[in-house]
Protein backbone atom coordinates (compact mmCIF):
# COMPACT_ATOMS: atom_id res chain seq x y z
CA UNK A 1 0.00 0.00 0.00
CA UNK A 2 1.13 3.52 -0.84
CA UNK A 3 1.99 5.53 2.23
CA UNK A 4 -0.08 8.50 3.37
CA UNK A 5 -0.51 10.87 6.28
CA UNK A 6 -2.91 9.53 8.89
CA UNK A 7 -4.96 11.90 10.99
CA UNK A 8 -7.75 11.30 13.46
CA UNK A 9 -10.26 14.10 13.17
CA UNK A 10 -11.69 15.32 16.45
CA UNK A 11 -14.71 17.11 15.00
CA UNK A 12 -16.66 17.19 11.76
CA UNK A 13 -15.52 20.78 11.13
CA UNK A 14 -11.92 19.67 11.62
CA UNK A 15 -12.33 16.86 9.06
CA UNK A 16 -14.05 19.12 6.54
CA UNK A 17 -11.27 21.74 6.90
CA UNK A 18 -8.54 19.19 6.21
CA UNK A 19 -10.40 17.77 3.22
CA UNK A 20 -10.82 21.28 1.84
CA UNK A 21 -7.14 22.10 2.27
CA UNK A 22 -5.92 18.83 0.76
CA UNK A 23 -7.65 17.81 -2.46
CA UNK A 24 -6.11 14.33 -2.49
CA UNK A 25 -7.10 13.51 1.09
CA UNK A 26 -9.88 10.99 1.69
CA UNK A 27 -12.13 10.45 4.69
CA UNK A 28 -11.82 7.03 6.34
CA UNK A 29 -15.05 5.64 7.78
CA UNK A 30 -15.12 1.85 8.32
CA UNK A 31 -12.57 1.27 5.57
CA UNK A 32 -14.32 -1.84 4.25
CA UNK A 33 -14.09 -0.56 0.67
CA UNK A 34 -11.38 2.10 0.84
CA UNK A 35 -8.67 -0.05 2.46
CA UNK A 36 -9.01 -2.98 0.00
CA UNK A 37 -9.05 -0.43 -2.84
CA UNK A 38 -5.82 1.10 -1.53
CA UNK A 39 -4.25 -2.34 -1.09
CA UNK A 40 -4.98 -3.05 -4.74
CA UNK A 41 -3.34 0.24 -5.72
CA UNK A 42 -6.61 1.59 -7.12
CA UNK A 43 -6.59 4.52 -4.71
CA UNK A 44 -3.60 6.39 -3.28
CA UNK A 45 -4.83 9.27 -1.13
CA UNK A 46 -2.27 11.73 0.23
CA UNK A 47 -3.98 11.73 3.61
CA UNK A 48 -6.54 9.58 5.41
CA UNK A 49 -8.80 11.48 7.76
CA UNK A 50 -10.13 8.93 10.24
CA UNK A 51 -13.67 9.90 11.30
CA UNK A 52 -14.01 7.27 14.03
CA UNK A 53 -13.22 9.56 16.97
CA UNK A 54 -15.98 12.07 16.14
CA UNK A 55 -18.61 11.17 18.71
CA UNK A 56 -21.34 13.26 17.02
CA UNK A 57 -21.33 10.89 14.07
CA UNK A 58 -22.37 7.86 16.13
CA UNK A 59 -25.71 6.81 17.46
CA UNK A 60 -29.33 6.09 16.67
CA UNK A 61 -32.35 8.09 17.83
CA UNK A 62 -36.03 8.42 17.05
CA UNK A 63 -37.14 11.91 16.09
CA UNK A 64 -40.88 12.10 15.38
CA UNK A 65 -41.60 10.13 12.21
CA UNK A 66 -37.88 9.68 11.56
CA UNK A 67 -35.13 7.37 12.74
CA UNK A 68 -31.86 9.28 12.65
CA UNK A 69 -28.67 7.25 12.37
CA UNK A 70 -25.21 8.79 12.63
CA UNK A 71 -22.92 8.29 9.66
CA UNK A 72 -20.28 6.37 11.62
CA UNK A 73 -22.77 3.91 13.10
CA UNK A 74 -21.64 0.38 12.28
CA UNK A 75 -23.89 -2.07 10.45
CA UNK A 76 -23.89 -4.40 13.48
CA UNK A 77 -25.12 -1.54 15.68
CA UNK A 78 -28.02 -0.83 13.33
CA UNK A 79 -28.86 -4.54 13.14
CA UNK A 80 -28.92 -4.86 16.94
CA UNK A 81 -30.60 -1.54 17.73
CA UNK A 82 -33.82 -1.89 19.72
CA UNK A 83 -34.89 1.51 18.34
CA UNK A 84 -34.48 0.41 14.72
CA UNK A 85 -36.02 -3.02 15.33
CA UNK A 86 -39.09 -1.38 16.84
CA UNK A 87 -39.54 1.37 14.24
CA UNK A 88 -38.27 -0.17 10.99
CA UNK A 89 -37.50 -3.88 11.43
CA UNK A 90 -36.75 -4.17 7.70
CA UNK A 91 -33.83 -1.76 8.13
CA UNK A 92 -32.38 -3.81 11.00
CA UNK A 93 -32.73 -6.96 8.94
CA UNK A 94 -31.11 -5.31 5.90
CA UNK A 95 -28.15 -4.21 8.04
CA UNK A 96 -27.88 -7.73 9.46
CA UNK A 97 -27.45 -9.12 5.95
CA UNK A 98 -24.62 -6.86 4.77
CA UNK A 99 -21.37 -8.69 4.01
CA UNK A 100 -20.40 -10.88 6.95
CA UNK A 101 -20.12 -10.46 10.73
CA UNK A 102 -16.62 -8.96 10.60
CA UNK A 103 -17.63 -6.47 7.90
CA UNK A 104 -20.72 -5.49 9.90
CA UNK A 105 -18.51 -4.79 12.93
CA UNK A 106 -16.47 -2.24 10.97
CA UNK A 107 -18.54 -0.97 8.02
CA UNK A 108 -20.58 2.20 8.50
CA UNK A 109 -23.84 3.58 7.18
CA UNK A 110 -22.23 6.80 5.97
CA UNK A 111 -19.38 5.01 4.25
CA UNK A 112 -21.72 2.71 2.37
CA UNK A 113 -24.10 5.48 1.32
CA UNK A 114 -21.31 7.84 0.22
CA UNK A 115 -19.72 5.06 -1.84
CA UNK A 116 -22.92 4.25 -3.80
CA UNK A 117 -21.65 0.82 -4.77
CA UNK A 118 -24.19 -0.49 -7.28
CA UNK A 119 -24.58 -3.72 -5.29
CA UNK A 120 -24.57 -2.32 -1.74
CA UNK A 121 -27.65 -2.84 0.45
CA UNK A 122 -28.00 0.52 2.20
CA UNK A 123 -28.79 2.59 -0.92
CA UNK A 124 -32.03 0.61 -1.32
CA UNK A 125 -32.96 1.53 2.26
CA UNK A 126 -32.09 5.21 1.83
CA UNK A 127 -34.17 5.47 -1.32
CA UNK A 128 -37.01 3.16 -0.27
CA UNK A 129 -37.39 4.66 3.20
CA UNK A 130 -37.63 8.20 1.82
CA UNK A 131 -34.54 9.24 3.75
CA UNK A 132 -32.74 12.53 3.98
CA UNK A 133 -28.96 12.51 3.85
CA UNK A 134 -27.69 15.14 6.28
CA UNK A 135 -24.24 16.47 5.46
CA UNK A 136 -21.88 18.97 7.05
CA UNK A 137 -23.54 21.70 4.97
CA UNK A 138 -27.05 20.69 3.78
CA UNK A 139 -29.84 18.14 3.57
CA UNK A 140 -30.11 16.00 0.43
CA UNK A 141 -33.31 14.05 -0.26
CA UNK A 142 -32.73 10.42 -1.23
CA UNK A 143 -34.39 10.97 -4.61
CA UNK A 144 -31.64 13.48 -5.46
CA UNK A 145 -28.75 11.62 -3.85
CA UNK A 146 -27.76 8.61 -5.99
CA UNK A 147 -26.52 9.75 -9.38
CA UNK A 148 -24.78 6.70 -10.82
CA UNK A 149 -22.16 4.04 -10.28
CA UNK A 150 -20.07 5.23 -7.30
CA UNK A 151 -21.53 8.70 -7.95
CA UNK A 152 -23.63 10.75 -5.53
CA UNK A 153 -24.76 14.34 -5.09
CA UNK A 154 -22.02 14.89 -2.48
CA UNK A 155 -19.53 17.60 -3.39
CA UNK A 156 -15.81 16.96 -3.07
CA UNK A 157 -14.94 17.06 0.62
CA UNK A 158 -18.60 17.03 1.72
CA UNK A 159 -19.21 14.63 4.61
CA UNK A 160 -22.37 12.80 5.64
CA UNK A 161 -23.36 13.56 9.23
CA UNK A 162 -26.38 11.28 9.52
CA UNK A 163 -29.20 9.70 7.56
CA UNK A 164 -32.78 10.16 8.67
CA UNK A 165 -35.16 7.42 7.55
CA UNK A 166 -38.92 8.05 7.44
CA UNK A 167 -40.73 5.39 9.48
CA UNK A 168 -43.17 3.52 7.24
CA UNK A 169 -46.37 1.75 8.18
CA UNK A 170 -44.59 -1.43 7.17
CA UNK A 171 -41.59 -2.38 5.04
CA UNK A 172 -39.66 -5.39 3.85
CA UNK A 173 -36.30 -6.04 2.21
CA UNK A 174 -35.39 -9.08 0.15
CA UNK A 175 -32.15 -9.72 -1.61
CA UNK A 176 -30.72 -12.36 -3.84
CA UNK A 177 -27.11 -12.34 -2.68
CA UNK A 178 -24.22 -13.30 -4.87
CA UNK A 179 -23.35 -16.65 -3.30
CA UNK A 180 -19.66 -15.79 -2.97
CA UNK A 181 -19.49 -12.09 -2.14
CA UNK A 182 -22.91 -11.69 -0.45
CA UNK A 183 -23.33 -8.44 -2.38
CA UNK A 184 -26.83 -8.00 -3.80
CA UNK A 185 -27.35 -9.44 -7.28
CA UNK A 186 -30.67 -7.73 -6.75
CA UNK A 187 -32.10 -6.32 -3.53
CA UNK A 188 -35.52 -4.71 -3.24
CA UNK A 189 -36.87 -2.62 -0.39
CA UNK A 190 -40.63 -2.05 -0.32
CA UNK A 191 -42.09 0.52 2.10
CA UNK A 192 -45.78 1.19 2.61
CA UNK A 193 -46.57 4.73 3.78
CA UNK A 194 -50.33 4.14 3.80
CA UNK A 195 -51.56 4.58 0.24
CA UNK A 196 -48.21 5.61 -1.16
CA UNK A 197 -45.61 2.90 -1.58
CA UNK A 198 -41.92 3.17 -2.39
CA UNK A 199 -40.03 0.39 -4.15
CA UNK A 200 -36.24 0.79 -4.31
CA UNK A 201 -33.87 -1.58 -6.06
CA UNK A 202 -30.15 -2.11 -5.60
CA UNK A 203 -27.72 -4.41 -7.39
CA UNK A 204 -29.55 -4.27 -10.71
CA UNK A 205 -28.52 -0.92 -12.18
CA UNK A 206 -25.74 1.66 -12.01
CA UNK A 207 -27.08 2.79 -8.65
CA UNK A 208 -30.21 2.38 -6.55
CA UNK A 209 -33.43 3.31 -8.34
CA UNK A 210 -37.21 3.26 -7.84
CA UNK A 211 -39.76 1.33 -9.89
CA UNK A 212 -42.90 3.47 -10.45
CA UNK A 213 -44.98 0.66 -12.00
CA UNK A 214 -44.54 -1.53 -8.93
CA UNK A 215 -45.16 1.43 -6.62
CA UNK A 216 -48.43 2.30 -8.35
CA UNK A 217 -49.74 -1.26 -8.23
CA UNK A 218 -48.78 -1.71 -4.57
CA UNK A 219 -50.31 1.69 -3.73
CA UNK A 220 -53.66 0.33 -4.88
CA UNK A 221 -53.32 -3.01 -3.21
CA UNK A 222 -50.42 -3.94 -0.93
CA UNK A 223 -49.98 -7.62 -1.72
CA UNK A 224 -47.53 -9.80 -3.61
CA UNK A 225 -50.36 -10.77 -5.97
CA UNK A 226 -50.84 -7.13 -6.97
CA UNK A 227 -47.47 -7.06 -8.73
CA UNK A 228 -47.50 -10.59 -10.13
CA UNK A 229 -46.84 -10.36 -13.85
CA UNK A 230 -45.61 -6.76 -13.95
CA UNK A 231 -42.56 -6.80 -16.19
CA UNK A 232 -39.52 -4.71 -15.30
CA UNK A 233 -37.52 -3.41 -18.24
CA UNK A 234 -34.01 -4.81 -18.60
CA UNK A 235 -32.83 -2.01 -20.84
CA UNK A 236 -30.72 -0.10 -18.30
CA UNK A 237 -29.80 -2.99 -16.03
CA UNK A 238 -26.38 -4.55 -15.42
CA UNK A 239 -25.00 -7.50 -17.28
CA UNK A 240 -21.91 -9.15 -15.85
CA UNK A 241 -20.49 -12.61 -15.28
CA UNK A 242 -22.98 -13.19 -12.47
CA UNK A 243 -26.11 -12.56 -14.50
CA UNK A 244 -27.65 -10.88 -17.51
CA UNK A 245 -29.79 -7.74 -17.47
CA UNK A 246 -32.85 -9.89 -18.28
CA UNK A 247 -32.11 -12.19 -15.35
CA UNK A 248 -31.78 -9.19 -13.03
CA UNK A 249 -35.04 -7.70 -14.35
CA UNK A 250 -36.75 -10.99 -13.51
CA UNK A 251 -35.16 -10.98 -10.04
CA UNK A 252 -36.48 -7.46 -9.35
CA UNK A 253 -40.03 -8.82 -9.62
CA UNK A 254 -39.28 -11.89 -7.51
CA UNK A 255 -37.48 -9.92 -4.79
CA UNK A 256 -40.19 -7.24 -4.77
CA UNK A 257 -42.83 -9.91 -4.10
CA UNK A 258 -40.68 -11.44 -1.35
CA UNK A 259 -40.15 -7.98 0.17
CA UNK A 260 -43.92 -7.39 0.20
CA UNK A 261 -44.42 -10.79 1.84
CA UNK A 262 -41.77 -9.89 4.43
CA UNK A 263 -43.49 -6.55 5.08
CA UNK A 264 -46.81 -8.35 5.61
CA UNK A 265 -44.85 -10.81 7.82
Amino acid sequence: MHTFVYQRATSLADAVAVLKAKPDARPLAGGMTLLPTMKLGLAAPSDLIDLSAIGDLRGIRRNGDRVVIGAMTRHAEVAASAEVRAAIPALASLADGIGDAQVRNRGTLGGSVANSDPAADYPAAVLGLDANVLTDRRTIAADQFFLGMFATALDAGELIRAVEFRVPKRAGYAKFPNPASRYAMVGVLVADYGGSVRVAVTGAGACAFRVPTLEAALGKQFSAAAIEGIEVSASELNTDLHGSAEYRAHLVGVMARRAVAAALG
Binding site: G31, L35, P36, D50, Q102, V103, N105, R106
Partner: peptide, 21 residues
Amino acid sequence: GACTVHVDGKSVKSCTMLAVQ
Protein backbone atom coordinates in the same frame (compact mmCIF):
# COMPACT_ATOMS: atom_id res chain seq x y z
CA GLY B 1 -11.36 -14.39 7.71
CA ALA B 2 -8.16 -16.25 8.69
CA CYS B 3 -6.89 -12.95 10.16
CA THR B 4 -9.91 -12.44 12.44
CA VAL B 5 -9.12 -10.95 15.85
CA HIS B 6 -11.29 -9.17 18.42
CA VAL B 7 -11.08 -5.40 18.68
CA ASP B 8 -12.87 -4.27 21.83
CA GLY B 9 -14.59 -7.65 21.87
CA LYS B 10 -15.81 -7.61 18.27
CA SER B 11 -14.54 -9.79 15.44
CA VAL B 12 -12.63 -7.86 12.80
CA LYS B 13 -10.55 -8.87 9.79
CA SER B 14 -7.15 -7.55 10.80
CA CYS B 15 -5.92 -7.48 7.19
CA THR B 16 -8.49 -4.77 6.50
CA MET B 17 -7.76 -2.48 9.40
CA LEU B 18 -4.80 -0.17 9.80
CA ALA B 19 -2.74 -0.71 12.92
CA VAL B 20 -3.16 2.99 13.80
CA GLN B 21 -6.91 2.56 13.78
